[in-house]
Write a protein that binds this DNA or RNA. Structure first.
Length: 270
DNA sequence: CGCACCCCCTGCCGGC
DNA sequence: TGCCGGCAGGGGGTGC
């Protein structure tokens, strides 16, 4: 579900409800997420105040008043939602948090691929091992070229490697490569300087545009208030197999590799 | 190191 | 109508 634009949208939508707010009670209904929640998870959170909401790649950082961070990753189907009243729990509501404002924060995740843990920044960095933020000045053509020297990896795999650049997933990798005019299975080391520059620019452009449209809702992505995103209506290639390319009218193709689909226009992308 | 493959888990959709 | 296989935005582990 959520790549960088969706997580950033969740962060922005939750911030007004969570910043400066104290956690009164925590109920863990199902601790078995990607990693099983620590036995003292609820106890460690209770009584803490959320100082600030941050994000790194696809990870949400809830900075607590004791210098620790409540790290949340939404996996494929995770939703972090604020609600005004305490409705009865729904299926797959794994963590419920009562806030000092009377709001409730609800973590729902049918597939349980999400991750939550509480730790220091150093502890979290060893778990996440993230590369540069794509929207920062650190992500440049020069940086990307340094990372792909002599690699035989496909450029799409490199872009989705969170240790290289943090936050690009399967949707935005396809979309940005279309905009850069580069074929997803192109061997990264064979790219020209101009092409790597275009890829970096396209990454920033697509991610910013997607954030502006509050992310992509294909099926179950929702922001912190349960609202859908709008970027799915602007996909140029993703999930458009057999439809005409918006540029040249040739039909969009799909290729599966490693269990993941790539979508591209064979005429526009080389 | 890279890569191909498998796994984790639930839900949905299309084909038969 | 009902069942089954394939697939889905995530990451991680293993063996070669």
């Amino acid at each position: 579900m959520p790549e960088l634009p969706e997580v950033e949208t969740v962060r922005r939508s939750l911030a007004p409800f969570l910043t400066g707010v104290t956690i009164r009670a925590v109920t863990v209904r199902e601790p078995r997420l990607r990693r099983t929640l620590a036995a003292d998870f609820a106890q460690v959170l209770t009584g803490r105040t959320i100082a600030q909401l941050g994000r790194r790649g696809k990870y949400l950082y809830l900075h607590l008043d004791d210098e620790k961070i409540w790290l949340v990753h939404l996996g494929m189907t995770g939703q972090l939602l604020v609600e005004k009243t305490e409705n009865p729990p729904l299926p797959h509501d794994h963590v419920l948090v009562t806030l000092s404002t009377g709001h409730r924060l609800r973590y729902n995740d049918p597939r349980r691929f999400g991750l939550m843990l509480i730790g220091t920044e150093a502890e979290i960095e060893t778990v996440t091992a993230l590369g540069v933020e794509p929207l920062s000045r650190m992500f440049t053509g020069r940086y990307l070229r340094e990372k792909i020297q002599r690699t035989q990896r496909a450029i799409k795999d490199v872009l989705m490697d969170q240790r290289v650049v943090a936050g690009v997933g399967n949707i935005y990798a396809s979309e940005l490569l279309f905009r850069a005019g580069v074929h997803p299975s192109r061997v990264a080391a064979t790219l020209t300087e101009a092409a790597t520059d275009r890829i970096v620019e396209a990454t920033k452009t697509v991610l910013r545009e997607a954030i502006r449209h509050r992310g992509s809702s294909i099926s179950d992505y929702r922001d912190g208030e349960g609202k859908r995103g709008g970027f799915q209506d602007r996909f140029r290639v993703y999930d458009r197999e057999g439809q005409p390319c918006s540029t040249c009218r040739q039909l969009i193709q799909r290729e599966t590799r490693g269990g993941r689909s790539s979508f591209f226009c064979a005429a526009c992308q080389r």
